[in-house]
Amino acid sequence: MSDLLTVAKLAGVSRATAARAFSDPQLLRPDTLEKVLAASAQLGFRPNHIARQLRTQHSTTFGVLLPSLLNPVFSLQLQAMERRARDAGYGLLVATSDYQPEREAAIVEHMLRQRVAGLVLTVADADNSAVLPTLEEAALPFVLAHNVPQQASWPAVCVDNRAAMREATQQLLTLGHRQIAMVAGPMLQSDRARLRYQGYCDALQQAATPPLPVIEMASHTAACFDRLAPLLQGATPLTAVICTNDLLAISLMGDAARAGVAVPQQLSIMGFDGIDIGTRLAPSLASVAQPAGELGHHAIEMLLHPVSRGLRVLPHQLRNGASIAAPAFIATPGNPHETA
């Protein structure tokens, strides 16, 4: 197995110069750096970054804690983070909590033992998280992604979840819907979902329309249409549903089609996240679009430049789609099925 001294001899440089090619390449002349790298490639030499990290106490790895990679919004975020980190000379150590708050502490402890230089994480509940005080006590730089702390000043990058859901609900109200429900995954696993429900309530209360309780599903990625079906009957049937993420909305659209419920003629469905696959459906999915790639880029940028930390709120957009339309009828006290 080759070592650094063998590389230095083949390249015709000192061992210190060869070491500098891997630790501080910008300090070498281009022709010298090229000779060292060529010798390294020829010999199949790989520098031991872990040993160097232990010697210098400087890590070139950022930790990333995500709830899941099943939702493309997190995958796009991760891709953008990897690109920005790589450009800055860092790699990523990635773990997922599967939306389980109890797993977060074990993952963060593992990250700390791996001596990561900083951490980007999405937790279940930022204001009641047990891991964030631990990170602060360890003096490890961290940035929350998607979480919006309400009671603490943790550094975070996000969209305004409450305002975004309020605007999305207002769009359904403008179309003429009054019986609107919100579908979410387990609420205790997502402070973002709770903020979105507040936005939903804001819009309905402003329209003098009573909000409905959250229709809570067992999963964040798959909905159960049976929970919805009874609400489509009666004098004031449900005419629109807004989901806390696109995967729930897509799941409902498929279930509705199999149940013979036409979207949007009988039921308008709106999502949240703006993932690309929603535009490829028929009907296409209306959604609140989050800038997932931009969010990931900013999260790493905030780790690299501590002065830029704080709360960074990114813009969202309402993405039009054929999954929402005016209700086929408007219920009135005299005639619950009066044609619009």
Score class of each variant (00 low, 15 high):
residue 1 M to A: 14
residue 1 M to R: 13
residue 3 D to A: 12
residue 7 V to S: 15
residue 9 K to R: 14
residue 9 K to C: 04
residue 11 A to P: 06
residue 11 A to D: 10
residue 14 S to A: 07
residue 14 S to Q: 06
residue 14 S to W: 01
residue 15 R to P: 07
residue 19 A to R: 00
residue 19 A to N: 07
residue 21 A to R: 03
residue 21 A to L: 04
residue 22 F to E: 11
residue 25 P to A: 02
residue 27 L to R: 05
residue 35 K to C: 01
residue 47 P to A: 12
residue 47 P to K: 11
residue 51 A to C: 11
residue 56 T to Y: 00
residue 58 H to N: 14
residue 63 G to D: 15
residue 65 L to D: 14
residue 66 L to C: 11
residue 74 F to D: 15
residue 76 L to I: 12
residue 77 Q to Y: 06
residue 89 G to I: 04
residue 103 R to N: 14
residue 106 A to T: 02
residue 106 A to N: 05
residue 111 M to H: 08
residue 116 V to L: 05
residue 117 A to Y: 09
residue 117 A to F: 09
residue 121 L to K: 01
residue 122 T to F: 02
residue 123 V to E: 04
residue 124 A to Y: 11
residue 124 A to E: 06
residue 130 A to D: 12
residue 130 A to E: 10
residue 132 L to A: 12
residue 134 T to P: 01
residue 137 E to M: 09
residue 138 A to E: 13
residue 140 L to N: 10
residue 143 V to W: 10
residue 145 A to S: 15
residue 147 N to C: 06
residue 150 Q to P: 01
residue 158 C to W: 11
residue 161 N to M: 02
residue 169 T to C: 12
residue 171 Q to N: 13
residue 174 T to N: 13
residue 175 L to K: 09
residue 187 M to N: 12
residue 192 R to D: 13
residue 192 R to M: 04
residue 195 L to C: 04
residue 197 Y to E: 14
residue 203 A to L: 09
residue 203 A to S: 12
residue 209 T to E: 05
residue 213 P to W: 03
residue 218 A to Q: 11
residue 219 S to G: 09
residue 219 S to A: 10
residue 220 H to Y: 12
residue 230 P to Y: 00
residue 239 T to E: 08
residue 242 I to L: 14
residue 242 I to N: 07
residue 242 I to T: 13
residue 247 L to Y: 05
residue 248 L to E: 04
residue 248 L to P: 05
residue 249 A to T: 08
residue 250 I to W: 00
residue 255 D to N: 02
residue 260 G to T: 08
residue 261 V to N: 08
residue 262 A to I: 10
residue 262 A to P: 02
residue 263 V to Q: 06
residue 274 G to C: 05
residue 274 G to T: 07
residue 281 L to Y: 01
residue 287 S to N: 03
residue 294 E to N: 08
residue 298 H to I: 07
residue 298 H to L: 04
residue 304 L to E: 09
residue 305 H to M: 03
residue 329 F to C: 13
residue 338 E to G: 02
residue 339 T to F: 01
